[in-house]
Simulated assay, not measured.
Amino acid sequence: MSSKIFSDSSLIGVVGVGSFGTVIANMLAEKNQVLVYARNAEVVAEINENHTAQGKSMHESIVATQDPQQLCESCQTIFFMVPSSAFQDVARKFSPFLQPYHLVIHGTKGLCLDLPEGQSLDEVKNLDRNRILTMSEVLQKETVAVRVGCLAGPNIAKELSKGQPAATVIASKFNEVILEGQRLLRSEKFQVYGNSDIIGVELSGVLKNIIAIAAGALAGLGLGENAKGLLISRGMVEMVHLSRALGGSVKSAFGLAGVGDLVTTCNSVNSRNYTVGYRLAKGEKLLQILDEMEEVAEGINTVKIIKGFLEAADLRAPITENLYRVLFEDLEIEEALQFLMKYPFNVDVDFV
């Protein structure tokens, strides 16, 4: 790696080269040189030698490293693009090298748990909000990074990689994070909005994954567009109530990261969460589906966490509760649907 690259102040860091991380790195590379981190030495070599990452094309301005210290010392702005299941470990790995001057934006639509070492979700009897962390909260807990933001919205990687028009939201309490994210990513085909409610935006991106699994199941059963409209509208109501309970705002749920992403993922065969629901409806088992998927469907873990939170908070969320029973208690999808059809929703909208 040349010293010329490291002396360039425009160098931007990207942590993680999954499908979304690769797309974001390529988009950033249209304006800046990019340094990506991958934990696998073979992937690093592939990027540097062939300009591909696990077969996916990478911009020629992108260079890879396996060294967290090298990336942190070379880049002031860093995009974290890793699954929620690995996010806490990766944050801890980068923690010795991240400084308060760094600007960190994550693109992970998931939740982590703050549990005593060795304890699992199944052993927790009272999963209150303090134990549930969004990814920005993980970064703030595990590192000294201050200027933290998130990237969320209807951003299906396959479509972005083709240059199809799309938009996203950069959310942060710090306006300079929003402005920098907009400067780096905005283009003629990619609009970037700003939002100061980072928790609300994160929760919107997380909670819509639950509804996307259910939407895939409806499609797999061949139940039509009316049923999907019912699910999306009731799912939106459930998202609003859950976001409020977890500390988010109603406003963010109605933005691009909420209803925008919800509609997209409930209608896209390219959505991993939608695909899980669709295959379940076709009679496949959850473990088989997950074993065959190349990347994580974040909604599976989210359903488990939110179910634990509902029990601790004594709240109801019928779509989430019944989806949990389908995923983990062998409830038939048809039976879950019948329950939802009979659930006593007496008011259409009760949060405005």
Rank of each mutant, 00 (worst) to 15 (best):
N48F: 01
R272E: 10
S2A: 02
Q338D: 15
V14P: 07
M293G: 08
D128M: 06
L98K: 05
G153T: 10
L113D: 01
K342F: 04
Q338T: 09
G260R: 00
C266R: 01
S7C: 12
S7W: 04
N175P: 01
V276Y: 02
N32C: 11
L221F: 07
P344N: 14
S243R: 06
Q33M: 04
S120T: 15
A245N: 11
M58E: 00
A45Y: 04
L290M: 13
G149K: 03
F328D: 12
G181E: 04
D89P: 00
L218Q: 01
A313K: 15
S2T: 13
E332V: 12
K109P: 10
E284T: 06
V349H: 13
L242K: 06
A217T: 06
L310F: 10
G260L: 04
E311I: 02
S19I: 13
I211V: 12
L207K: 03
T320D: 06
V14H: 14
L230E: 01
L111S: 03
E298K: 08
K228T: 06
R131F: 12
G255H: 03
I156A: 11
K158T: 15
I62C: 04
V82N: 03
L151K: 07
I24C: 07
T134L: 07
A41H: 09
Y193F: 15
H59A: 14
R234H: 12
E117A: 14
K304H: 06
F6K: 08
S271G: 10
G205R: 04
S84M: 05
R39S: 04
E42M: 13
A227D: 02
G153Q: 08
E123Y: 06
G255C: 08
M236A: 01
S196P: 04
S84F: 07
D314Y: 09
S136F: 12
R131S: 11
K304D: 02
T275K: 10
I62M: 08
F80H: 07
S252D: 01
V148K: 00
I213H: 00
L139D: 08
C150F: 05
Y274K: 10
F339S: 05
A86E: 09
N226V: 00
G181Y: 03
E238C: 09
K304C: 09
L11G: 06
G247F: 08
V144I: 11
A253F: 06
T275M: 09
I24H: 08
G153F: 07
N195L: 07
F328A: 14
P344V: 12
A145I: 05
R325Y: 02
E332Y: 07
S2R: 07
F351Y: 15
V104R: 01
A38H: 07
V14T: 14
A38N: 14
P154Q: 15
S136D: 14
F97D: 11
C75Q: 03
A245Q: 02
I178V: 15
S7T: 11
G153P: 05
G107K: 10
E46W: 05
G247I: 09
Q76N: 13
V276W: 00
M58G: 02
V148C: 05
G205Q: 06
M293V: 14
L323N: 03
N273Y: 12
V146D: 00
T65Y: 11
A245T: 08
S196L: 10
P318L: 04
D350I: 13
I211L: 10
R131E: 04
